[in-house]
């Protein structure tokens, strides 16, 4: 298991190199002069040239890249063109907010998604099943920003129950609307996946065995069916957590949430390459680490996988 984890962590390195390479190329292709972004409009050509030299952007792109990688290895993500602050500190300011929001969304996803999925599988074709089917369809179809705005208008503006935007003092009230918005699509997917895997699991022989033992329906579903049904759902949720961490661009923009999604979004608009690249690298790392965690949970849930891994180790 340890060997497996170490191997997976080492795998992050080529991924990071690939990602930086792509981003670097993209940012280089964009014909925008960072020096012009930083200095005032009327800056002299000498001043511009001077700054370019200081920033190192007068060098060929491969030299720039090599420098960037060297700094990256030390954990330095460079300096923002726009804010003249280190990218590390900008991201450090915003990442926690995004992670908190993502966690809030994941909690909604797990509780509501799995519960709805179980109910609709166990009570197949009932009113509740229909309700879940209809509401998940709506959740998937409705654009995220539209849902966010509708929630803002109804619960924030009309009813005045919840704050419309921002993080305020960081209390739970501020999280509710953006978290629901962020979680909506994934919750629908989790509910549907739970429903379908649950239905499949319920038709297995070991479920009949469990009933034949004299177990109650709650025990059969809660113990024997659920653990099997959750195996693929855990994968979905884990992958989603990785995606949510950075995929909150729309939600964070609509709700004016001071997170990294909104920061990257603004950085793209402002051609602030170091922030875009640095933010994306962290994003990718989180994604890869989340995948690793998912695999570990997966192995804990399913002994057959644990077994195979053991085999590979030897």
């Amino acid at each position: 298991m340890l060997y497996f984890i170490i191997r997976r962590i080492l795998q992050i390195i080529p991924v990071i190199i690939g990602v930086t390479l792509i981003l670097f190329t993209l940012m280089y292709i964009i014909p925008e002069d960072p020096a012009k972004l930083i200095l005032e409009k009327g800056a002299t050509p000498e001043a511009l040239q001077n700054l370019r030299g200081k920033m190192g952007i007068d060098k060929p792109v491969y030299v720039q890249y090599w420098r960037y990688i060297k700094k990256l290895a030390k954990g330095d993500l460079g300096t923002s063109y726009r804010y003249r602050r280190s990218v590390n500190s900008i991201l450090a300011d915003h990442y926690p907010n995004s992670i908190k929001l993502a966690l809030a969304a994941i909690i909604i996803e797990i509780i509501i998604g799995i519960f709805a999925g179980i109910v609709s599988a166990v009570k197949k074709y009932s009113f509740w099943d229909m309700l879940v089917t209809v509401s998940t369809t709506i959740a998937v179809c409705v654009p995220v920003y539209w849902l966010g705005m509708m929630l803002q208008v109804s619960f924030g503006l009309k009813l005045g129950w919840l704050p419309m935007s921002g993080m305020g003092d960081g209390s739970i009230r501020y999280y509710i609307l953006p978290a629901i918005t962020l979680a909506s699509v994934s919750t629908a997917f989790v509910a549907r996946m739970t429903r379908s895997t649950m239905l499949e699991v319920l038709s297995n022989d070991y479920i009949t065995t469990a009933y034949a033992k004299g177990l109650s329906t709650n025990m059969v579903i809660g113990k024997h069916a659920l653990k099997n049904a959750l195996i693929p759902v855990v994968t979905l949720i884990g992958m989603d957590l990785g995606a949510l961490m950075g995929g909150a661009i729309l939600t964070e923009t609509v709700f004016n949430w001071p997170g990294v999604g909104r920061t990257i979004y603004l950085a793209i608009l402002q051609r602030d390459a170091p922030v875009v690249i640095g933010g994306t690298i962290i994003l990718v790392m989180i994604f890869v680490v989340m995948n690793l965690i998912v695999d570990i949970i997966y192995a804990l849930l399913d002994p057959r996988i644990r077994y195979e891994k053991k085999e590979i180790q030897i």
Binding site: D205, T208, T209, Y211, A212, K213, K223, K227
Partner: peptide, 21 residues
């Protein structure tokens, strides 16, 4: 009654036991 007074054994032992316990 189930599993207590009357119990049952099934055809396929490969699928009749829960793989995750």
């Amino acid at each position: 009654f189930r599993g207590n007074r009357i119990s049952m054994i099934f055809q396929d032992p490969m699928t009749s036991l829960n793989p995750v316990y």
